[in-house]
Nucleic acid binder design. Structure first.
Length: 547
RNA sequence: GCGCCCGUAGCUCAACCGGAUAGAGCAACUGCCUUCUAAGCAGUAGGUUACAGGUUCGAGUCCUGUCGGGCGUACCA
């Protein structure tokens, strides 16, 4: 509809001002319903250029618009010079019939058709179970992936990890210490060691398998490998439980093995962006506007994480993706510009990298903020949270706010299964429809007249037309969400849709109405139910038939 | 100190990226179940969008400064 309106306006403008360079025409959905179903501000933006009164320009455009198709009920000039449009009922009914034809695929768009997109998220190193702190990253990354898929893209979900560094060494030492302790050997726990109970569990597993054979072993490898394997299994189980399924796991090590790291260094050196000082290798980030240069290779010979990060991003681009999306917490906000600059300096297109930065989650427990640390084992795991609140609620809480704002996660509130919990509002709407459908199927015999088209023109009540309008917005919501990568828009939309349904439920009935009206309303509900369940599917949340 | 993000109703947050009278949920108050699920609906109350300037037809949104919170600012990841 928006494209159609744009077209009409362009035609009108060409008629009135043949020489005018056509401006960008923005069609918006007004905030208040009194302003119609769609509006444009072209006249206001043109006022300056044409040196004329915006209201007058708006009126001229409105008068010159070709509205013979009957899609529009009204075209009005309002306020300082807006043009407001109201859709005709017949247009709504026509579109509703199209939606019905589209069936379960309604909402799929072609915005990112044929685009290959890699979404990298979670990427927590295997040092412990996923905590509530990782939850926002995981759920955001997965949901953005889902939205992009609905917008037509081919999405690959990737988990990047490092199993070589200092962290992993400390982890292995922690496991060995627990192992030795379990054999009755006195041993001081490493000062910076991981104190969680899961470390002891892993140590006991090793003891069960190897007995005391490893007591004199100097080598940490077995401890490290066992720990990594166990923790990774744990992480994957947690992700799957949350409805998240990774396509690939990328080990940082590969970048050393295949020479990518060295290639990056060479390329940067050629650009004169690298120099040695005090045995360390530095990256001239000052030439990209930074205050200080940054170290790529420490004087010990060990690279900092930034170097593999650069190589990793180049690797992703070389794999041929049209777009590479990173999901980062606010703590990475300062580092990614370096990576992007380096990638560009190596001759790659920086516009193919899109970084989603989300603000940290404040966990509120017993009404107080709760600080977490994996090392100190002072954390709430995602599993614990899902045990108490369920996967649906957990996902919903991470998604319901814009990524850019600090999210307060109140564990007690999430656990409450009552009306306080906003996810049930959406699921309830779906369950309510299913329940009606069940009764409708028993009462009416719609199957035998499956070929008969419902007469949607019977749906001219207020509750019905607003519901239809909501339904028709769905594909646009998908596109907007995919463009901005802000899944909470889907939630806001579904809330509006659910509200319009609950109002319909209050005002309109099906059982007891005549066959034609009952059929039309049933079909309307079928479509609504499809949109609700599609929307929930994008959020990775179940759409129950019964509650 | 410097850089990035945030500041909107009592609380948690929206506001389609500059549009018209700033909206929801929770909490408070008032109504509505012998009829398809009351996990619902209808209504009341709640605001100088932290503060002060500026930009323009028009600012919660953009610019400058101040205040407050978060995160960075390592040869840690």
């Amino acid at each position: 509809m928006h494209d159609y309106l744009k077209e009409l306006i362009q035609q009108a403008l060409r008629k009135i001002h043949p020489d005018l360079e056509l401006p960008d025409i923005i069609i918006e959905k007004p905030r208040t319903p009194e302003h119609g179903d769609a509006a444009t501000n072209v006249a206001l933006t043109l006022a300056n250029k044409l040196k004329d009164n915006p209201r007058k320009i708006a009126q001229e455009i409105a008068d010159s618009m070709d509205t013979h198709t009957g899609y529009l009920k009204s075209v009005e000039v309002a306020g300082p010079g807006f043009i407001n449009f109201r859709f005709s009922d017949s247009w709504l009914f026509t579109k509703l019939a199209e939606v019905r034809q589209a069936g379960k695929s309604f909402g799929k768009t072609r915005l990112f058709e044929n685009r290959n997109i890699l979404v990298e998220f979670v990427s927590a190193n295997p040092t412990g179970p996923l905590t509530v702190g990782h939850g926002r990253n995981a759920v955001l990354g997965d949901t953005i992936s889902r939205v992009l898929e609905w917008a037509g893209a081919n999405v690959q979900r990737e988990y990047y990890f490092n199993n070589a560094g200092r962290q992993m060494r400390i982890l292995a030492e922690s496991v060995r210490t627990r192992y030795l302790q379990s054999l009755g050997i006195k041993r001081e726990f490493p000062e910076e060691g991981y104190e969680g109970a899961y470390i002891t569990d892993i140590a006991l597993k090793i003891r069960d398998e190897h007995g005391d054979h490893l007591a004199g072993d100097k080598d940490l490898d077995l401890f490290r490998e066992t720990a990594e394997k166990n923790i990774f299994e744990d992480i994957q189980r947690t992700l799957n439980r949350m409805n998240i399924f990774m396509d690939t796991f990328f080990n940082e090590n590969l970048l050393y093995e295949d020479g990518s790291i060295n290639k990056v260094l060479e390329k940067l050196r050629k650009q004169n962006l690298i120099y040695e000082q005090e045995d360390a290798t530095w990256f001239r980030t000052t030439s990209f506007g930074k205050e200080k240069d940054t170290v790529l290779i420490k004087s010990s010979g060990e690279p900092t994480y930034r170097l593999p990060d650069i190589a990793y991003h180049i690797n992703k681009l070389e794999r041929g993706f049209d777009l590479v999306i990173d999901v980062f917490g606010a703590d990475h906000i300062a580092t990614y510009p370096d990576v992007v600059s380096a990638v560009e300096a190596c001759g790659y297109d920086r516009d193919k990298i899109d970084v989603i930065v989300y603000q940290f989650v404040t966990i509120v427990k017993d009404g107080k903020p709760f600080k977490m640390s994996t090392r100190k084992a002072n954390f709430v795991t995602l599993d614990e949270l899902m045990d108490e609140a369920g996967a649906d609620v957990t996902r919903f809480f991470f998604l319901m706010r814009s990524p850019g704002t600090h999210l307060e996660f109140d564990i007690e509130e999430a656990k409450q299964a009552g009306e306080k919990n906003p996810v049930y509002y959406l699921q309830y709407a779906h369950a309510r429809i299913q329940s009606i459908m069940k009764k409708v199927r028993k009462t009416y015999d719609f199957e035998t007249r499956a070929n008969r088209n419902p007469d949607f023109s019977l749906l001219s009540g207020n509750a019905e037309t607003t519901m239809i309008k909501r339904i028709l917005e769905f594909p646009d919501v998908i596109n907007q969400t995919a463009i901005h990568k802000e899944p909470h828009k889907v939630i806001n939309y579904l809330n509006e849709l659910a509200t319009s349904f609950h109002k319909f439920y209050h005002d309109c009935r099906i059982l007891g109405e005549n066959d034609d009206l009952a059929l039309a309303r049933t079909e309307l509900l079928t479509v609504t139910s499809t949109v609700l369940s599609n929307g929930l599917k994008i959020l990775g949340i179940s759409a129950p038939d019964k509650m």
